[in-house]
C-alpha cells in the first residue's frame, strides 16, 4: 500500500535530478540543438566564477536573512500581544494571518503598483502629503522592497506558529514566577523564550526552505534588476536556462541551489526526526 507513493516520489526525485546533473556537464543550448557535447566541470566553473553568481548569492542570503529577522522578531512580538486577553481576539487573529493566503503574484503586484509606485502609489501620496519627495522603491531599493513584500507574506506564518507554541505554555509556572517578583523581561528570557525555542527553530528552518526559492515576487516586480540588484539564485538559474536557453549553465546553477538547500535541510530533518521519536 505504501509503494505507489514511494515509487512516484522516487521517480520524481531521481529522474529529473539525474538529468539535471547530466545536463550540467554538457555544453547545451536550446537554440543550437544537436550541438551538445561533454565539457566536464566547465559549466560549474563558469557559473561559480560569474560575478552575477556572487551578487545573486549575496542577495539570496540578504533576502532570507532579512525576512527571517523581520518575521521572527515581529512574529514573537505579535504572538505575545495576541496571547493577552482582549476584545475581538478572533477577529484580530484573522486580520493578522490573512496575508499568508494571498497568492505571491497578487501581493507582489499590489505592493509594487498600489503602494510602492513613485507616482500613483499610496506611499508616494503619503510622502507628498507631508512635503517629502516620493521614493522610487523598486528602482532605488529593489532588494529591500522585495524583502518587505516577502516579509509581509510570511509574518502571519511565524506569528501563527509562535502563538500556537505560546498557548501551550504552562500558565501556573508563569504565575508562580510573577508571584516571586520576576519582571516581564526576566520572565520572557527565562521562561517564555526557552519554551518557544523549538517553535522558533522550526519557523526558521521551514521559512528558509521556502525563502531560498522565492521567485514569483521577483519575476513580477523587478525581473531581477536593475542589473542583478534583486536577482537571487533561483531567479538566476531561471534566467540562464529559460531566458538565455543555456541548459548546461542553468543545470549547473540548479545543482548549486540543490546543494545550498541541502545544507539547511539536514538541520531541519534532524529537528523533525527527533520529534517523531518523542
Amino acid at each position: 500500500m505504501l509503494s505507489p507513493a514511494v515509487l512516484l516520489l522516487l521517480g520524481w526525485m531521481i529522474v529529473p535530478l539525474s538529468m539535471t546533473i547530466y545536463f550540467s556537464f554538457l555544453s547545451y543550448n536550446l537554440l543550437m540543438p544537436g550541438m551538445e557535447q561533454f565539457v566536464g566541470f566547465a559549466n560549474y566553473e563558469f557559473f561559480l566564477t560569474d560575478p552575477a553568481f556572487f551578487e545573486a548569492l549575496a542577495n539570496t542570503l540578504l533576502l532570507v536573512g532579512g525576512v527571517l529577522v523581520i518575521t521572527i522578531v515581529g512574529g514573537t512580538a505579535l504572538a505575545l500581544l495576541l496571547d493577552q486577553p482582549m476584545w475581538g481576539q478572533g477577529i484580530v487573529r484573522i486580520l493578522v494571518i490573512a496575508p499568508f493566503f494571498v497568492m505571491p503574484t497578487v501581493s507582489a503586484l499590489v505592493w509594487k503598483n498600489m503602494f510602492m509606485n513613485p507616482v500613483n502609489g499610496l506611499f508616494a501620496h503619503l510622502a507628498k502629503g507631508v512635503g517629502l519627495e516620493p521614493f522610487d522603491f523598486l528602482s532605488h531599493a529593489p532588494l529591500f522592497s522585495i524583502i518587505l513584500i516577502v516579509a509581509w507574506q510570511w509574518l502571519p506564518f511565524a506569528t501563527l506558529i509562535l502563538l500556537t507554541a505560546l498557548q501551550s505554555l504552562d500558565q501556573e509556572q508563569l504565575e508562580a514566577s510573577e508571584m516571586d517578583g520576576a519582571k516581564f523581561g526576566s520572565r520572557f528570557v527565562h521562561i517564555v523564550l526557552p519554551h518557544m525555542s523549538r517553535a522558533i527553530t522550526v519557523v526558521i528552518l521551514i521559512q528558509t526552505i521556502f525563502l531560498l526559492s522565492v521567485f514569483a515576487e521577483i519575476l513580477v516586480t523587478t525581473n531581477g534588476g536593475p542589473g542583478y540588484a534583486s536577482t537571487n539564485i533561483t531567479y538566476l538559474v531561471y534566467a540562464q536556462s529559460l531566458l538565455q536557453f543555456d541548459v548546461g549553465g542553468g543545470s549547473a546553477g540548479g545543482i548549486v541551489a540543490v546543494i545550498l538547500a541541502n545544507i539547511v535541510a539536514i538541520f531541519l530533518m534532524r529537528m523533525i526526526g527527533k520529534n517523531l521519536e518523542a
Binding site: M19, F23, S213, F215, S241, S251, G253, G254, V258, A261
Partner: peptide, 13 residues
C-alpha cells in the same frame, strides 16, 4: 527530504 529539493534544481528536465 524530497520537499526540500529546490524547484530550480529540476526546472530544466
Amino acid at each position: 527530504s524530497t520537499k526540500m529539493l529546490p524547484p530550480v534544481g529540476v526546472l530544466i528536465p
